Computed example of a mutant assay.
Amino acid sequence: MHVLVVYCHPVETSFHAALHREVLRQLRSAGHTVDDCDLYAEGFDPVMSREERLGYHDVPANQAALGFYVDRLRRAEAIVFCFPTWCFGLPAMLKGFFDRLLMPGVAFDISDPANVKPLLTNIRRIGAVVTYGRPRWMAWYMGDPPRKMVTRYLRRLTGNRARVDYHAYYHMNVATPPRLARFMARVGQAMARFA
Rank of each mutant, 00 (worst) to 15 (best):
P46K: 11
Y169G: 04
V130W: 04
R124P: 06
Q26W: 00
G55K: 15
A41H: 05
R50S: 15
L73A: 14
M184C: 00
R50N: 13
A78M: 02
K95Q: 08
N122T: 14
G89A: 11
G127F: 11
A76V: 12
V80E: 06
A107R: 11
G143D: 04
A185P: 00
Y56E: 13
R134K: 03
P113C: 06
T121R: 15
F98R: 00
N160V: 07
I126R: 04
G31C: 05
D58Q: 15
M48Y: 09
A78H: 02
L157K: 04
V23K: 01
L39C: 07
N160W: 14
W140L: 10
V106R: 10
L24A: 06
T176N: 02
P113K: 13
I123Y: 12
S14V: 04
V174C: 07
F68E: 14
H16I: 09
A64G: 03
K148G: 07
G67T: 13
E51P: 05
R179Y: 05
N62T: 15
I123S: 13
F68M: 10
D112S: 15
P46S: 01
L119H: 06
M184S: 03
F194C: 09
L66E: 08
P84Y: 00
M1E: 09
L19P: 01
L73Y: 08
R25K: 08
K95F: 00
D36F: 04
A61L: 15
D58R: 15
R161F: 06
I126W: 01
G127I: 07
R25H: 03
M191D: 01
A128H: 04
R152N: 11
S111M: 10
V47F: 11
M149T: 14
A30Q: 00
I126M: 11
W140I: 07
R28H: 05
A41Y: 04
A168M: 10
F108D: 14
L94Y: 05
A168S: 08
D35V: 08
Y170H: 13
L54W: 12
P60V: 13
D144G: 01
A41F: 01
A114T: 09
R163L: 13
R25M: 01
S49K: 12
R179T: 08
R124C: 12
F83Q: 03
W86L: 02
G105H: 13
G89I: 04
D144K: 07
L120R: 09
R21W: 00
V116E: 10
E77M: 08
L39Q: 11
D36G: 09
R136V: 03
W140T: 12
L94D: 03
R147C: 04
Y40Q: 08
Y153C: 09
V130M: 05
G67N: 14
I123V: 15
A190G: 10
L101V: 12
R75D: 10
G43A: 05
R74N: 12
H167N: 12
G96V: 06
V80D: 03
M1V: 14
K117L: 14
M103W: 08
R72G: 06
V5L: 06
G105D: 07
